[in-house]
């Protein structure tokens, strides 16, 4: 019996996975879908931000109008006509016939006796504190 003395074929090195067009197509599709989705997400986010901006602007306009309205109401309430009507009709007051001057040991208030409704901010009005990250940014040596 003849013995075949042949060398066993050398173990073939692990063959690199063959190029698979299916996988490539899937990958390409996946990339395309991802890019498309990103586009959609970005677009949607952009639209959302735009809508939010419009809402904020509308709110600002409304608040600004409200401030003007309130200022006008304050002015109307402090008008001389209304004050006189209230004094006469509601409080039953009449113009003074004789004036009495009483000297008291207290200094007279300086300036106008009544506040200037439109141009002087209320002294109690406090500024909003800055957010922590702004404070942090401001504390940096470079800005």
């Amino acid at each position: 019996m003849a013995t075949l003395d042949r060398l066993a074929p050398p173990a073939s090195p692990p063959v690199a996975q063959a190029w698979n067009p299916r996988r490539a197509i899937v990958a390409a599709l996946f990339a395309a879908v991802t890019i498309a989705l990103l586009q959609v997400v970005q677009s949607s986010s952009f639209a959302h931000t735009g809508q939010k901006l419009q809402d904020i602007e509308a709110e600002r306009t409304r608040l600004s109008a409200e401030i003007h309205q309130l200022e006008a109401e304050v002015a109307a309430l402090s008008s001389l006509d209304r004050t006189e009507r209230a004094a006469r009709d509601r409080l039953g007051m009449v113009p003074a016939v004789r004036l009495e001057y009483v000297s008291v040991g207290v200094e007279a208030p300086a300036g106008a006796l009544l506040p200037r409704p439109l141009i002087i901010a209320s002294p109690g009005a406090q500024r909003q504190p800055l957010p922590w990250w702004q404070t942090l940014l401001q504390s940096l040596p470079f800005r």
Partner: peptide, 19 residues
């Protein structure tokens, strides 16, 4: 723009604007 107000010497508005 919003038009400025005209005030008397004590700051009471004589003319102001509303929206």
């Amino acid at each position: 723009s919003t038009r400025g107000a005209i005030l008397d010497r004590n700051g009471f508005p004589l003319a102001t604007s509303v929206d």
